[in-house]
Nucleic acid binder design. Structure first.
Length: 217
DNA sequence: AGCAAGATTAGC
DNA sequence: CTAATCTTGCTA
């Protein structure tokens, strides 16, 4: 059963957790590919400096201010697209980033889309940029309503426990516990607790270190 | 107009 | 560990 628009109503954190275990499907002329959502991150309308909408509406983040249940796809680091699902009622920004999937159907098609980068099955969809490539999602899917074909979500059972950690790769709002994942699932992108910094954060840390060194002169 | 940063990935 | 790669948004 395709998840209806009403599924996406409610707080972003609540929707983020509810999305775990659901199945994301994309039907293209080349075939159908799908995967179970095993890792997400919430981006909130309030008190969240890490959210694209934190500094008001822009051309890029406009979709986040619209009605829930729509896709927010954007380009990052010059190489990758990120796939988000818009939450909250119209006028209030908010979205859930899909960070990892467990492949369900169309494994061969995903492997073809991932090309030479697919070394083993785990590498197919265990990262936000990877799953987007595996499912054949691109900028054209920005603002697409996710309750109809070809790109939609299927209701599924979830039995696993939900784990919570801070979000990954941010330079702002990095301390907020807004990353949710299925405990024990091998497709979760990064093992929690491991130190991992984005280039921006490394630069920031380096600048702080230099400043501190200058003060002790 | 120009430039720096960025919700990442893969390869060295 | 770091280059790759390019769009967006702000103005060093």
């Amino acid at each position: 059963m395709i998840l209806s628009p009403s599924f996406y109503q409610g707080s972003t954190q609540k929707i983020a957790k509810a999305l775990l275990g659901q199945i994301l499907v994309n039907e293209t002329p080349q075939g159908l590919s799908s995967g179970r959502i095993v890792e997400v991150e919430a981006y909130l309308s309030k008190n969240d400096p890490g959210c694209h909408a934190a500094r008001g509406k822009t051309l890029r983040n406009a979709v986040m201010f619209g009605p829930p249940g729509y896709a927010y796809v954007y380009f990052c680091y010059g190489n990758h697209f990120m796939f988000n699902i818009v939450t909250e009622k119209e006028g209030v920004p908010g979205a859930v980033l899909i960070r990892a999937l467990e492949p369900v159907k169309g494994l061969d098609l995903m492997a073809r889309r991932r090309g030479k980068f697919q070394s083993h099955e785990l590498g197919l969809t265990n990262g936000p940029g990877k799953l987007v490539q595996a499912l054949g999602i691109d900028r054209g899917h920005n603002h697409f309503p996710l309750f109809k074909k070809p790109l939609y979500l299927l209701a599924a059972e979830r039995k696993e426990k939900i784990g919570v950690t801070t979000r990954i790769g941010l330079t702002e709002g990095a301390d907020l516990p807004l990353r949710f994942y299925l405990e024990g699932n091998p497709y979760v992108s990064v093992k929690p607790g491991k130190d991992r910094f984005s280039p921006g954060m490394k630069k920031k840390l380096k600048a702080q270190a230099l400043k501190k060194a200058a003060q002790t002169e």
